[in-house]
Structures are given as structure tokens and as C-alpha cells.
Design a protein around this nucleic acid. Structure first.
Lengths: 205, 205
DNA sequence: GTCTATATTTCGATAGAC
DNA sequence: GTCTATCGAAATATAGAC
């Protein structure tokens, strides 16, 4: 029963944000009277907190793809694939997270300052080691991580815009494959792990 | 007077979203009685529409950097710089736009289907021409544009998260320079317009 | 044009029967 | 555990004096 409510709440919070969502909408979406929500979750904020926490856990699990790889190309490539797949399968959760952060993380600020900060520092350290060993191009590890998050989550958070630019149709299987491949290709080549660049050309002007 | 209200509204809408923002908050932020807002803007939605439209115009102006350049490296590099600068100077506007799109663009769907669709198709066509002429690596132009939007706007939309991971301090001048340089470097090298990749190495496993 | 006061609606949350 | 009915607070929007 909690799961039913959480699923409905995730969708409504993603569509309307915390302030815009109403308990009535969530109750209707879950097919329950409004009072039942308050039976399982004392307040609207408690329900919201659970929804955000769910998404945070999904993010953290994507780290496994990163940690289990032998080198930078495999690690970052697999991480991109994992994050893209999450954007595809849990777009609503990603939107709830994005909205929460954009509003200053009033509910999950403590997670940002503890779990996420440690997670990020650890991976940045691994990336720096690869750079020091000459296994990838020297780039700021934090900015690289931000780019990975930005590019992959964009397909969830801005999915509506992408769908509109795709002729109003959801991305097909092929569209998703092409998106994944392009992100992987540009990022990996961008950090020195791809094919050779084009030969220099004279540019007018 | 309209400008004062719009400036205050942008901040409140960015912090709380459309549903979470109240006319009272906007009035307080603007230093006006609530009734005056309704004198200049008939409804909350009309005020919100103006705020979103303002941001949309700022986005479109960033296209000048793209259009005025002689080739792909200059065009995309200048576009990244322009978009990063917008993220720095107008982070609230970017957040309002992001929230609007995440909620399904209920107010500006027509802009997505007309102006943005045409803008995107035009630039994708230019990129495809550069690819056909061998002036940059063959990548899906739409996915490249999405990556440019995602990476640059991330610094505005997720600015709070970045600031938290930056030790709770706003990005310094140097931080912004490093961010800009990293994004430019990775993207440009990622589309074949940078230095050579690292020599292939044996990877364990 | 600007303000105070208020009408009207809708929200989150609860009471209490079953 | 589940429902109907409702309370009290807060929201948008307006009326009307100045």
C-alpha cells in the first residue's frame, strides 16, 4: 500500500513540484481517499521526503558500474550507460530530484553534505589517479562528473522538450541507442579516450 | 514598475516553482501590496508567462554567438561561453525555464513547437553541413545540441548542488573559468576539434 | 495608481462512524 | 484499516476608499 502511494506521489510531485502538488491529486492517482494518505504518511512533507530518498538510492546504485570497471574508458562508459538507463526508466524520480535541488534542497540538504559529498570526492580521486597515470586527458574531475550528471539526467528532466523536438513522439529504441552512443562517444573522446581528431584545417576569417 | 515585479517574480518562481510561489511572497519581495500585482498582471499565470517569456528571449540571443562564427570550433566554443555566462548571470531564469519544461511546458508549449523547433532544426542543419564537409566528427547534431544545453544549464539549475560540493561556497572567478574551459575542452575534443587522444594502453582485465 | 479589507476557493489535516 | 464530512488556515482575486 505504501508502494502504491509512493508511486503515485512520485508522478504528481514530478509533474507539479512539491508546492504545486496536492494531496487530493495524489489520492486520486492512487485510487484512495485523501484521508488514507495521512494514515500511512503523517504529513505531505513526510511523503515527499520518502519519494526523494527513493531516487537518491537509485542514483547511488549507478555507482556500481563505475566502481567495478578496470579503467577509465570502461568505468565512465558504463556509468553513462547506467545513468542513461535510469533517465529512461525513472524519469519522474529524476525530475523530483532536480526540482528539489533547484529549490535549494530544503528537504535533502543533509544528503548533499554527507553521502553525495563523500561519493563525489571518492570518484574525483579515482579520476585524478587515472589522470596522474596518464590513462586519460587531464581535466578537472569535478567538472567531468558534473558533465556526466548533466548530460544523462537531461534526457529525463528535459524529456518533454526533447520529445517535442522529436516531432512530438517519445524517443524510440533506436533514438535511445543513438543518444547513449553519442553521449558516450563525445565524452570519452573528449577526455582522450576515443579516435584521433580531424586534421587541422584552415578556417576563413 | 512592471520590471520590478518581474524581477521579484523570477526569483520567487525559481525558488518555489509556480505552484509553490505565492503572490504574497512576490509582493513582499517587490515591496508592494499584493493588490498592485493584480493591477499590472491580471492573474498569477499571466505574470508567470511574462517571466518565462523573458528567459526564452535570453536563450535565443545566445544563438548570435553561434551564428556569427566562421566554423564549428569558433561557433560551438563561443556558444558554450555564452550559455555558461547566461547560467552565471541569470541562474533564476534558467531554473524557471527548467521547472516549466519539467512540468510539461503547460504555459510555453507553443514556443517549443514553433520558435525552438525551428531554431534547433536550423542549427542542426548547420552542424550537419560541417560534418558533411569533414570539418568536425560525425555526431548526431540534435544530441550534440542537447549536450550543449545540458552541460551549460546544469551550472544554473544545479547551482545549489555544485555549491554544496564546492564546500558550501559559491564558485569563484577561477572556478567559473575552470568550468568553462573544461566544458569547452571536452565537448570540442569530443567532436574531433581538439588535441590528439592518448596513445592506446593495455588495460588489466 | 495605490492601498486596506474582504470575498471566495482550495488546501492540508483531522474527527469520528463503520 | 477505510471511508465521509469537515475544520481551520492560507491562497488567489476583487471591491471600493483615497
Amino acid at each position: 500500500m505504501e508502494a502504491t502511494i509512493l508511486r503515485a506521489a512520485e508522478g504528481i510531485f514530478a509533474e507539479a513540484g512539491f508546492g504545486g502538488a496536492t494531496m487530493q491529486q495524489i489520492a486520486d492517482s492512487a485510487g484512495l481517499p485523501k484521508a488514507n494518505l495521512h494514515y500511512y504518511f503523517p504529513t505531505k512533507e513526510a511523503l515527499y521526503r520518502q519519494v526523494v530518498q527513493q531516487i537518491f538510492d537509485i542514483w547511488l546504485h549507478a555507482a556500481d558500474s563505475f566502481d567495478d570497471a578496470p579503467g577509465p574508458a570502461e568505468a565512465i562508459g558504463a556509468y553513462i550507460d547506467a545513468k542513461m538507463e535510469i533517465s529512461r526508466r525513472h524519469p519522474q524520480g529524476s525530475k523530483v530530484w532536480a526540482t528539489e535541488v533547484m529549490h535549494g534542497a530544503p528537504v535533502i540538504q543533509d544528503y548533499l553534505e554527507t553521502t553525495l559529498r563523500e561519493w563525489t570526492a571518492d570518484r574525483a580521486s579515482v579520476i585524478q589517479t587515472w589522470i596522474d597515470e596518464g590513462r586519460m586527458a587531464p581535466v578537472d574531475p569535478y567538472q567531468l562528473l558534473y558533465m556526466l550528471w548533466a548530460t544523462t539526467q537531461h534526457y529525463a528532466d528535459f524529456g518533454h522538450q526533447i520529445e517535442t523536438l522529436n516531432g512530438g513522439r517519445p524517443l524510440s529504441e533506436d533514438d535511445w541507442d543513438r543518444a547513449k552512443a553519442t553521449v558516450r562517444q563525445i565524452i570519452l573522446r573528449g577526455i582522450g579516450l576515443g579516435p584521433a581528431p580531424l586534421p587541422a584545417q584552415g578556417q576563413p576569417g
